[in-house]
């Protein structure tokens, strides 16, 4: 089971130009292929791999700026239809 997982993951991460990857629907084509090496390398070596929080989303706390917070609320309202809940577009 573990070997099969590893094999499939390897296909996903490293050999996307092979026909097996095509068969598995994992081929990344076009201008993504240029970015792909970078993506995988970030994934493996980037800071995400070392964080303790689950998932890829980091929830670091950063200082708030009053102007920015108020302006974001204002902009959300501006791009929402009249009477829509404030996070209509989110």
């Amino acid at each position: 089971m573990m070997l099969r997982t590893l094999a499939a993951l390897s296909l996903a991460l490293a050999s996307l130009n092979t026909s097996a990857a095509d068969d598995l629907g994992m081929r990344i084509s076009g201008d993504d292929s240029a970015n792909f090496g970078l993506t995988i390398s970030n994934w493996i070596e980037g800071q995400d791999a070392g964080t303790l929080a689950p998932g890829l989303i980091r929830e670091d706390a950063v200082a708030l700026d009053e102007w920015q917070l108020r302006m974001q609320i204002r902009m959300e309202r501006a791009v929402s239809p009249p009477g829509a809940p404030i996070n209509q577009t989110r």
Binding site: A12, M26, D32, I40, L56
Partner: peptide, 21 residues
């Protein structure tokens, strides 16, 4: 945004391939 979506897409394709297998 594209880079993050691409990472997740790779993972989704991995799961799909594995489930098909």
């Amino acid at each position: 945004e594209l880079e993050r979506a691409t990472r997740y897409l790779i993972m989704a394709r991995f799961s799909l391939g594995h489930a098909y297998a």
